[in-house]
Design a protein around this nucleic acid. Structure first.
Lengths: 237, 237
DNA sequence: ATTACTAAAGGACGAGTAA
DNA sequence: TTTACTCGTCCTTTAGTAA
């Protein structure tokens, strides 16, 4: 959609930031060049090109020129900027996984049933998980890599605790949906302790995922983990 | 500050908008080329360059590649975008004028005293103007051009009215400051009727500008008109 | 079908310099 | 001092094509 050449962006932005949207401002091509990290000659060429394209107007003022950005030029920059912005903002903030359902609800069920976690699930996730995790064996190296790095993203963080006998590690929760929306309020767990392996994904939900979706052991399954991109990444611990 | 080459921006944005921030996505260089308005070969080169620079990573998937934007790449794009954004947003939204004060408060004073305007000034501008306008004769062609186009900008709009005998035209007001802040709450008027000429600026304020600032007839004066840039320009009538 | 090499064309840029 | 011309160099792109 935007017609403006990429190389001219810096020049236009520089002019606009100097107030050239509404006023004719005096800039020398040498200064301009310095500001955009190019030579005087390059800046001069930019202004000539932009003038030809109708994006700026210039008037002689003695030996120098005064420059103003035209409506057309402003529209062009704003629309370029708007389309970049919307492209960046519409970027899906989710990590996709695929794998097959395997049996092994035992251990998960035990942990979920512990009071020290249950309380936090209810408080931070909004529900008490069905007792038992759905285990998904990832099928592709790409998903295993993503699984390994999953814990780096901002999470719903459940503190570890001690019951007097032993201590239990923290749990990071990530909201997730299953099979393109067949179930929306699931969550994927990243545990401090149980370091299964990077090919395994543990999924919980308020109800039995198998019952609710009809998924059986051995079935292929897609899990989409939603990531919070609201800036300020990478947190402890 | 941003190190990334301008020509790579579109490619990076395209990848990000396809979700390559968190997932390895499959893109062919032919598709990518189409999306950024370049050839397949150019897209291929971009990916090679970006990979070398550490802005993306790729993994073979059969014959194709899957691509993901690295943290470094994302940081680069976000910071480029942020610096453009701040440059554009910090752009001063004001039109500067310079001229000399001339006598001629008569007519302005008469208009300002009319009840049909006084009411609207108080309501929309927040004060009742000192009775009398300060007239500024613009000295440079550049300012006269700007004066001619002033009415196109969003304004504080006073309706015209009739007192039974005759009708009075609309008035557009623009908040303005005088001599770099010597007076901040002045306003410049653009009248429907009184089509003086493009070299004249009429300025009002809650008090006598001459008394408050010590400006006398014949003095040079700067008037800075503030423009409302909050998008959605160009309105009636 | 897909990537990316090569060669050649096109464009952007900086140095030198005229006006 | 300023702008902008020419020209040589380097960078970017495309077409053709190999793998």
């Amino acid at each position: 959609m935007p017609e403006i050449k990429l190389q001219h962006i810096l020049t236009m932005v520089q002019l606009l930031s100097k107030g050239a949207r509404h006023n004719f401002i005096e800039v020398t091509t040498a200064d301009l060049g310095k500001n955009i990290g190019r030579s005087q000659q390059a800046a001069s060429k930019h202004l000539l090109d932009l003038e030809t394209a109708g994006y700026i107007e210039r008037v002689r003022r003695g030996q120098k020129f005064a420059v103003r950005v035209t409506d057309k030029g402003n529209t062009e920059i704003q629309s370029l900027f708007a389309s970049l912005k919307s492209a960046l903002e519409s970027a899906p903030a989710a990590i996709d996984f695929e794998g097959s359902v395997v049996s092994g609800m035992g251990e998960g069920a035990y942990y979920m049933s512990l009071e020290g976690y249950k309380k936090q699930f209810l408080e931070k996730l909004g529900y008490e998980p069905y007792p038992g995790t759905l285990n998904v064996r990832l099928t592709d190296q790409v998903y295993m890599n993503a699984r390994r790095e999953l814990g780096r993203h901002p999470s719903i963080f459940l503190e570890g605790f001690s019951d007097g006998t032993r201590t239990y590690g923290w749990v990071k929760c990530y909201r997730a949906s299953i099979n393109d929306g067949a179930m929306e309020n699931a969550a994927v767990l990243v545990l401090e302790r149980t370091h299964y392996d990077d090919s395994m994904l543990e999924v919980i939900a308020p109800v039995s995922i198998k019952d609710a979706t009809g998924i059986k052991n051995g079935d292929r399954i897609k899990v989409q983990v939603r990531i919070d991109n609201s800036h300020g990444h990478h947190q402890m611990p």
